[in-house]
Design a protein around this nucleic acid. Structure first.
Length: 564
RNA sequence: GGCCUGUUGGAGAAGCGGCUUAACUCAUAUGCCUUUCACGCAUACAUUCAUGGGUUCGAAUCCCGUACAGGUCACCA
């Protein structure tokens, strides 16, 4: 009897406290429930999200997360949205929110709703946490009235001290139970201290016990059994903004997220979220804790670090000119190991056509594999038509490679021909893995670049007498027939070789080395070096066809002059 | 240190009690093809599934211990 009376008394003072702290809050959780009703979607439709903090460039891991999240929504005809988690004002980097969106867009990841940099779309906003302060206040006020939240006046030093005591006593560290100093401050006292201007945070009053276990289901890992939460976590910081834990509960509930996809580093705090959802009377979303992308460093696996690893930044791949399709295909191969087999069966790298599933996802952090990315990239670039390649190359170079851009922008026809060499078919040429290496490979096709290459001499075979090379080139200049197709043309090269005592094939040469100066391969090499300034190039016939008679003649003459 | 998660070749992995002499892909090596390079083709690459024990007629697959790796223990997300 006395107990009930006391409880009633406490409750009313809790309410006074809450009213004092949140004078602006007029609405209740029920009002918000009505304002943000469940979306009218088919049952299997998933609502997913990507919730980055504006603290720097887009991380490869973040791209991975957003790719999977958007894929899940896309596959189920659901909704994918973006929410900006900007509650950490200290770490915030000006403009990085917009940058994140731009980079996501570059990869074709466009949300159905949410924060879009310059604007927002959707009925569940605002989608920027700093603009949602009111909603958090509504929810905290609710908890406080129920006695499930209380102001805490402890300083960092005090908390530090508590931890030291706990460490010495070998008990679980943290702000809970008897160690939660402010937990039992009466509402009257708290009110007085707040009125006196003392700084405070608001903590959640946990009813859990570390000795109990909670089981929660993870879409990737299955059931995870873990100690119940007993920590009185901070839910509102002294600056009035919510902590991640609280914002997660409020936002994902009112934005009606059905599946929360996040990094595995959140598994440990899941019990906090469980209790928070419960206390607020919210239905729990499904969770999927994805593995992180790692790197091998001195034999140890560690997370890709923004500071140490250039490949941690998505911008790095954009600047190098990896096609967006390559990166997406690579990331999908990490997400679902059967994706690679699927690409081979279907001769397709379009991740939109692939069916993603959580249970094919790895549980372990995967090592970033540049070789694998390169492989996808080569295959994908080889699968494009020359026109497609040209357009993409042009767009990229305009932004990141001025020299290349100036060479290709005004001569689509010429460049397309170059890019078309040995393109298509089962045995397509696969020598480009990213845009940045295109110019070094095809540069010789351009007059100015060719002169630059050749300026310091030609890499002719030292063992071959100069007058022989000269004679071969002179003969070639006189007798080269542009009208012939590859096979017939190459026969004329063989004949040319024969006139200068070169065997028609390596086989013939090997049988009687003394009878010849060399074989056709050597002849082709001389012509190649004269025309491109290097020992290797794409198919010679193609090169000659593209350069044209005039240019070939000029280059041959230049080489002859060089030989003296 | 407590708790959580994981451990199949250099990488990503399939397999989840007998069809596995452990699939497939990338990488690597060698050879073939070839006018160079690239492509393509062929072959090789884990007697063994971190390790020790157990259950079983039978284990990579189930159970227990150990080791190792990653995560987490903030008014950071």
């Amino acid at each position: 009897m006395f107990q009930d009376k006391y409880l009633e008394l406490i409750m009313t003072t809790f309410k006074e406290l809450a009213d004092y702290i949140f004078p602006d809050v007029k609405e209740t959780i029920e009002d918000l429930e009505k304002k943000f009703p469940k979306r009218n979607l088919p049952r299997e439709a998933e609502v997913t999200r990507f919730a980055p903090s504006p603290t720097g460039f887009l991380h490869l891991g973040s791209l991975f997360m957003s790719l999977v999240a958007s894929k899940v929504a896309y596959d189920t005809k659901g909704v994918f949205y973006i929410r900006l988690e900007d509650t950490d004002t200290k770490r915030e980097i000006e403009g990085s929110g917009e940058e994140l969106i731009t980079q996501l867009e570059h990869f074709g990841i466009v949300p159905n709703e949410g924060y879009l940099g310059s604007k927002e779309i959707g009925n569940y906003g605002p989608y920027v946490q700093s603009k949602r302060a009111y909603f958090y206040r509504v929810c905290i006020k609710y908890l406080m009235e129920k006695g499930r939240a209380y102001p805490c006046f402890c300083s960092h030093e005090q908390i530090e001290e508590i931890r030291h005591v706990q460490e010495a006593m070998k008990v679980i560290p943290g702000y809970y139970g008897e160690y939660a100093l402010c937990r039992n401050i009466t509402p009257e006292d708290a009110l007085a201290r707040i009125k006196a201007g003392e700084k405070y945070v608001i903590r959640f009053r946990s009813e859990g016990n570390f000795d109990n276990k909670v089981i929660f289901h993870d879409l990737i890992r299955g059931d995870i059994s873990i100690a119940e939460n007993a920590l009185d976590v901070v839910i509102m910081k002294s600056d009035g903004l919510p902590t991640y834990h609280f914002a997660h509960a409020v936002d994902d509930h009112f934005m009606r997220t059905t599946t929360v996809l996040r990094g595995e580093e959140w598994i440990a705090s899941a019990p906090i979220h469980l209790e928070l959802f419960n206390a607020l009377g919210f239905e729990l979303p499904r969770y999927a804790h994805a593995p992180v992308i790692m790197k091998l460093d001195n034999g140890n696996r560690r997370k890709l670090s923004k500071r140490k690893d250039p490949e941690a930044s998505v911008q790095h791949f954009i600047e190098e000119g990896f096609p967006k399709e390559s990166l997406k295909a690579y990331l999908m191969s990490i997400a679902n190991s059967n994706f690679e087999e699927w690409t081979m069966e279907n001769h397709c790298f379009d991740i939109d056509k692939f069916k993603f599933s959580f249970d094919k996802m790895s549980l372990d952090g995967v090592l970033f594999d540049q070789d694998k990315l390169n492989y996808f990239s080569k295959e994908i670039i080889a699968s494009w038509s020359a026109e497609e390649f040209y357009e993409k190359l042009l767009a990229w170079s305009k932004e990141y490679d001025e020299v290349l851009y100036n060479h290709i922008k005004d001569d689509k026809e010429y460049v397309t021909k170059i890019l078309n060499i040995e393109r298509g078919g089962e045995k397509a040429r696969k020598d480009f893995t990213y845009f940045k290496e295109v110019y070094p490979i095809i540069g010789f096709f351009f007059e100015d670049r060719f002169l630059e290459i050749v300026k310091d001499g030609y890499p002719f075979n030292e063992a071959m007498p100069k007058d022989v090379i000269k004679a071969v080139l002179e003969d070639f200049a006189k007798n080269n027939d542009y009208s012939l197709p590859n096979d017939l043309w190459f026969n004329t090269v063989k004949e040319l070789g024969a006139r200068h005592n070169f065997a028609e094939s390596n086989k013939v040469y090997k049988q009687n080395k003394d009878a010849y100066l060399g074989h056709v391969g050597d002849v082709a090499e001389m012509i190649r070096i004269a025309l491109v300034g290097a020992k290797n190039s794409p198919n010679l016939h193609s090169v000659i066809q593209i350069l044209g008679k005039e240019e070939v003649d000029r280059r041959i003459k230049l080489a002859i002059d060089y030989l003296g």
